[in-house]
Design a binder for these strands. Structure first.
Lengths: 159, 159
DNA sequence: TTGATAACTGTTATGGTATAACATATCAAT
DNA sequence: ATTGATATGTTATACCATAACAGTTATCAA
């Protein structure tokens, strides 16, 4: 729930950290953080919000890194698969992971007014859902949890 | 996780019950279960699976109930808003509610192999996520929880 | 180095999902 | 009967996503 706002310097750090973490992880795992993949991760970290694939593609196009949808979707697929970004189903959009490196099953708080998104911990698999699945013989591989509502800022504006 | 299969008679009952429940609820709440809305609910109950809006629209078109996308989307919006159906974000699809009338925040078990969907109880709002939201000052209005994995049937086939 | 293999990129084409906007019709209550 | 709210019909368009195939680059073993 931390807002980046105008803290430019810290934000620069957080972008660098995110990219470096991805770099290290990829080197370790024998994955290739190619220019386009790296740039898409940077974009997501810079913007610090959920972005549509086409919005990202527009930026890539301006920078000469690709102009067709698959370029963006492939980079995003890579980032999501390796935990550097998450897909927000409700928004058909993507966001940089707030806790790169950690193995986690995130939940998201999505503001219906300003579309801001916060990453929160989730334990869907462990709770009542996991129990229901086990009873039913359903084998859960992954979960996603998204909550819609009002962020603190938009909440105040209404009140 | 119950399968409807060939139990035609019981299934007929379950469709009727679903429609009747919606009927009663609408009468009570001053809502209008118009022919198209009623028919879309019937279709979802009959098929007992997640269906895309365009798939539903095809049926409506054959029956002379409408031919353009908004017809289907409006009916679905009505059904979802009033709890007679749920939207499955992961599949961009819709399914009849398995527990009409009851106030509930459902979770879904989605088979990645056969796309079957089961409705399960969820308590996302009450668990760790709710706590995190409260701490952050985020006001949750609704949640959705979807688990991807293998249903019992597909699990067996793999094994 | 070279050749084989796997991974990645570029591009075209297409398919699937969803909604804005506006005109018309119907309903429900006075 | 009139009015205001709700629902429908329709056109047009926007947005989201991927299949398929050709070409390129990285990696590694021989």
């Amino acid at each position: 729930m931390t807002t980046i706002g105008f803290e430019t310097h810290n934000h620069r750090d957080c972008i660098d950290k995110g990219v470096q973490a991805a770099d290290a992880f990829c080197k370790d795992a024998g994955l290739r953080l190619t220019p386009t993949r790296r740039r898409v991760l940077e974009i997501l970290l810079e913007q610090h919000r959920a972005m549509g694939a086409y919005e990202i593609l527009d930026i890539l196009r301006d920078e000469g890194l690709g102009s067709q949808p698959p370029v963006a979707y492939r980079a995003l697929e890579f980032l999501v698969q390796n935990g550097f970004a998450h897909r927000i189903e409700r928004l058909n959009a993507f966001i940089a992971c707030a806790h790169p490196g950690q193995d986690h099953a995130p939940a998201f708080l999505i503001c219906r007014s300003c579309d801001s998104v916060a990453e929160a911990p989730s334990e869907a698999k462990k709770g009542r859902l996991g129990k229901a699945a086990r009873t039913a013989g359903f084998h859960i591989e992954s979960t996603f949890v998204e909550a819609i509502g009002l962020c603190p800022k938009c909440n105040d504006e209404v009140a």
